Computed example of a mutant assay.
Amino acid sequence: MLMEAEFWVAVAFVVFVAIVWKVGGFDKLIEALDHRGVRVRKELDEARRLREEAASVLADYKRRRAAAESEAAAIVASAREEAERAAAEGHARLNEFVARRTKAAEAKIAQAEAQAAAEVRAAAADAAVRVSETILRERMSGDAAQDLVRRSLGEVRTRLRA
């Protein structure tokens, strides 16, 4: 048994453990493990705090996004209303313009009709006077006839032109 390698490995291990225990290596190992546990606990706390902070930032972002979406919807609705109002106003202006132009055209047509009727009346009066004058000259003769023709023609002219 003293010559076997396993025996000497076991003895060396026991001696090593005794030296480590005597020097206080186990206390330092336990202290190092405790420090590592504290550090891991701090890291976990920091990670939990960062997670809560990230959740808060995410909630704030979602709230802001919802507010921005509602504001964008309000802007779009306002723009639609403004466009509809502008279209209605433009339509009303166009209708008013067409009505004014139609009224002006009708007035011009009525004026042209009145002027044409007056010109036709004047032309008819002149033609009637000429025809009457010609007929009276051919049928009547003398100064009395000339006087009668002038008075009659003057009277016809004034009545037809009126």
Rank of each mutant, 00 (worst) to 15 (best):
residue 6 E to K: 13
residue 8 W to N: 11
residue 8 W to P: 00
residue 9 V to W: 10
residue 10 A to I: 05
residue 11 V to M: 05
residue 12 A to H: 07
residue 13 F to V: 08
residue 14 V to I: 09
residue 15 V to C: 00
residue 15 V to I: 08
residue 16 F to V: 03
residue 17 V to F: 05
residue 17 V to D: 08
residue 27 D to P: 05
residue 29 L to P: 03
residue 34 D to G: 02
residue 35 H to L: 07
residue 38 V to N: 12
residue 41 R to V: 09
residue 42 K to T: 06
residue 42 K to I: 10
residue 43 E to I: 02
residue 44 L to E: 13
residue 46 E to S: 13
residue 51 R to D: 15
residue 53 E to M: 06
residue 58 L to R: 11
residue 59 A to P: 01
residue 61 Y to R: 08
residue 68 A to R: 09
residue 71 E to Y: 08
residue 72 A to L: 15
residue 74 A to K: 10
residue 74 A to H: 08
residue 76 V to C: 02
residue 77 A to D: 05
residue 77 A to H: 02
residue 78 S to M: 05
residue 81 E to R: 12
residue 81 E to C: 00
residue 81 E to K: 03
residue 82 E to W: 02
residue 85 R to M: 06
residue 86 A to V: 00
residue 88 A to T: 01
residue 90 G to M: 01
residue 91 H to V: 05
residue 91 H to G: 07
residue 97 F to E: 12
residue 98 V to D: 03
residue 99 A to N: 07
residue 100 R to M: 09
residue 100 R to K: 11
residue 102 T to D: 13
residue 104 A to I: 02
residue 106 E to P: 02
residue 107 A to V: 06
residue 111 Q to P: 01
residue 116 A to M: 06
residue 118 A to I: 03
residue 118 A to G: 06
residue 119 E to C: 03
residue 119 E to G: 13
residue 121 R to Q: 11
residue 123 A to F: 07
residue 125 A to F: 01
residue 126 D to I: 03
residue 126 D to E: 14
residue 129 V to R: 00
residue 130 R to M: 03
residue 131 V to Q: 13
residue 131 V to C: 04
residue 132 S to N: 04
residue 132 S to Q: 01
residue 134 T to L: 13
residue 135 I to L: 12
residue 135 I to G: 00
residue 137 R to D: 06
residue 138 E to D: 06
residue 139 R to A: 03
residue 141 S to V: 14
residue 141 S to F: 09
residue 147 D to M: 13
residue 147 D to L: 13
residue 149 V to E: 13
residue 149 V to W: 03
residue 151 R to D: 12
residue 153 L to H: 04
residue 155 E to N: 10
residue 158 T to K: 11
residue 159 R to F: 10
residue 161 R to G: 14
residue 162 A to H: 12
